[in-house]
Amino acid sequence: MNDTVKPTRITTVPRYGDQPADKLYLPAIYAGIKVTLGHFVRNVLDITAMETLEYPEEQPTDITSRYRGLHRLTHREDGSIRCVACFMCATACPAQCINIIATERTDGIDEKMPEIFAIDTLECVFCGMCVEACPCDAIRMDTGIFSVTGKTREDFVLQRDRLLSHTGAFETEQTRNKEASHD
């Protein structure tokens, strides 16, 4: 039986290029020149109306609290380090850029703390997996710092004390997983 099922949704793709005006191409050139010349004249007449940011005098305007900037290690209320060197962030990191060496904690709050906590920002892809993996809300990426400079490769490996010294850039911080902080 010749039962041809007609498809119910036929999308016709419009094909261009067969008209004489298309083949001549000069009308298309004219239309293109109108656009570019319009942009050019508009920008020449007032160059400060451009959306381009004059970095470094103008800093980016779209850094929000969700922006994944440089990492920071958080403190507890008494000032000690919150991280317990559980290695979950190092395991979760897809670029394997976190190096932790744990040591015994001396202030009796927990058992372990990181003696060496090094993040290689040259390897880091700023994905935020470490922040999601941490059970203690010890590492965050809300510093809002987007520019890291250095003269040698070693300058880009951030150690624990520098990470502790970074501060969060946003006032409305909610501490995640407060029950995990063993307070």
């Binding site: 570019t36 942009h39 050019f40 920008n43 020449v44 160059i47 451009m50 959306e51 381009t52």
Partner: peptide, 10 residues
């Protein structure tokens, strides 16, 4: 310069 001004950058 013209390339930049056409592309909305200085």
């Amino acid at each position: 310069r013209v390339c930049g001004l056409i592309q909305d950058r200085p």
